[in-house]
Design a protein around this nucleic acid. Structure first.
Length: 170
DNA sequence: AAGGCGATTGCCT
DNA sequence: GGCAATCGCCTTT
């Protein structure tokens, strides 16, 4: 974010993807699109979904091993005005959950686009931070991943049960 | 060179 | 719940 106020969100819903995982973009090995998935963990992988929306992942594996976590929903912490503006929502203190409860929605709100592909989440202006919040086991929901056609039964979607910002079934 | 399809969303019924 | 919108990637000729 350049020349803008701070934007901050909390991750409340994610999905895990692994190299040995038929549902993962990395399953068939490196390609131009998924190349960043095979870099070291801590990088940002952005791809175009359905020719319309961008989705953002955190690369999590070692170099040459294509693992990543898709960010599916976030909760606003700071910069709500910009988040609303980016989505074309009128600003209110309590915006509808539809502002951020989907992988293509949150990238639009945060302004994440293919220019972010390959960036480090440790950059000064683009940082992923451990908030140090500890959750009880039963607070973390598990479910099959959404919108995939392979490995449908794997419970690799994780979400915070108490958060109203998660995208679907809680 | 060409065609099928997807880690989605929003609108319509 | 169904479906159109939309385009780059990947696979196949």
């Amino acid at each position: 974010m350049q020349g803008r106020d701070l934007l901050a969100v909390k991750l409340v819903e994610v999905e895990a993807y692994f190299q040995e995982d038929p549902a993962s973009h990395s399953f068939s090995g490196p390609s131009r699109r998924n190349a960043v998935m095979f870099e070291e963990g801590g990088l940002c992988y952005v791809y175009l979904s359905y020719g319309i929306h961008y989705c953002v992942n955190v690369v999590t594996g070692r170099k040459h091993h294509g693992d990543a976590v898709l960010i599916r929903a976030v909760e606003p912490l700071f910069g709500l005005r910009f988040l609303c503006e980016n989505r074309g929502f009128p600003y209110t203190e309590a915006p509808p959950f539809a502002l951020l409860n989907g992988p293509g929605k949150l990238t639009e709100a945060l302004g994440i686009n293919p220019a972010y592909n390959g960036r480090s989440f440790r950059d000064k202006d683009f940082k992923l931070i451990d908030l140090g919040i500890s959750l009880e086991e039963e607070e973390i929901g598990e479910s099959p991943r959404i919108g995939i056609s392979k490995a449908k039964d794997e419970l690799l979607r994780y979400f915070i049960r108490s958060s109203p910002w998660v995208s679907k079934a809680r």
